[in-house]
Design a protein around this nucleic acid. Structure first.
Lengths: 213, 213
DNA sequence: TCCCATCCTGACCGTATGGTCAAGATTAGA
DNA sequence: TCTAATCTTGACCATACGGTCAGGATGGGA
């Protein structure tokens, strides 16, 4: 017997629909930008009537805000790895791996984030000024400690962080360009590994990270 | 006597107006994205009536296309430096300087370019497939030659190029984030120099570029 | 001076978009 | 079973946008 489709409860319906809408919105905002995205297209991608979107998210802005906020959470989470690491080889190496993996699996999210920041962060500026500033200072302290302990060269931690962000996110944000330069085909598993290892090798050697062990 | 304002010739009028419009368009497209930009706003920034824009550029797309094309030209030009250099220290060092300078002076152009590529290059895909592919292969050959000559480590030239693009353009595309993390103030002259030298130092050391002389 | 080509622009148009609403369907729970 | 709360949706609205156009202004060349 092919699955007794028990009707969903109200709570389940809400959860499921919000998820479907947010996923569709992320995709559409990434592909068209905030201004180019239309509620109708998001609705089509989500497979729901447009009026239903407005039932769950009153305005286009409120929908966009939720998309960006959840992306920001992911963005920060990737760095837990950073703190527990004994030194830059492990910490920064793992951070690069984690961010490259995000670029690979959630390119749409990365693009929405890039777009938001490029347009002067109209909806998450307050987060940048509080959460991001704190987060950055924390990570800078870790790097500075590694420098003091002689585990890497005396690099300006700020610019190292920028380089890490730039390089890893580039593989998502400029994925189309990279694909075009790869004969129009997406990077294969091997090519992703090669990318990761190139990035890690250049940066870790570049900051004079002492090889562990 | 305060300047006899000779009336402009037709040719001058056209040149001047097209320049004013293209400048305004670049700014507005950078700030709002293609979809978010309006002809009215571009007209206001240019200080001309909207109908006048349509006299010089028949459609929004055609205006956008010209903006992107001229940015692409600049993008490519920055790499002449590359070819004549005797080795990676000079060539890549100078390339980083040049691209950082572009990021500093023409952040709007960089953002428009990033946005175009992020949205799968709807108007310049053909350029990517021809000009950019050729250009990239040329530069990869130069890097490979340096590797063969033992002037740097055997890095995958492709990923090195991506890192150069990513890192330098990041200072324009994510300039707002960088500014926010700099107490809300733009980078000073000294800070730009520090950024350039951090980037150069990490990358040149990271690829094992043999110091010249 | 006169005529033509180019330039300029306020007023206008059709359409697409974000958002609303009222009426119906479905579930919760008393 | 009956009522209230939640969910669903087609039809509708006001606005903003890209684009058009007719008619006037301005400069070029003979």
């Amino acid at each position: 017997m092919p699955q007794t489709a028990r009707p969903l409860s109200k709570k389940e319906i809400r959860q499921e629909n919000e998820r479907v809408i947010l996923d569709a919105a992320e995709k559409v905002f990434a592909e068209a930008g905030f201004g180019g995205a239309t509620m109708q297209l998001i609705a089509d991608v989500a497979g729901l009537p447009k009026a239903n979107l407005h039932y769950y998210f009153p305005t286009k802005e409120s929908l966009y805000r939720q998309v960006v906020q959840s992306i920001f959470q992911n963005w920060l989470k990737a760095a837990d790895i950073f703190d527990d690491a004994p030194g830059p080889s492990e910490g920064i190496g793992a951070y690069i791996d984690a961010k490259m993996e995000i670029s690979r699996r959630h390119p749409a999210g990365s693009k929405v984030w890039a777009s938001e920041v490029m347009h002067r962060a109209p909806v998450i500026q307050d987060y940048l000024e509080t959460t991001l500033v704190e987060w950055t200072e924390g990570r800078m302290n870790v790097i500075q400690r590694w420098i003091n302990e002689g585990k890497m060269d005396p690099i300006d931690p700020r610019h190292l962080l920028y380089m890490l962000w730039a390089t890893t996110q580039h593989y998502a944000d400029f994925g189309h360009q990279i694909e075009t330069l790869n004969n129009g085909t997406p990077l294969s598993q091997e090519q992703w590994e090669a990318a990761k290892s190139s990035v890690k090798s250049i940066i870790l050697k570049g900051i004079g990270a002492v090889d562990p062990g």
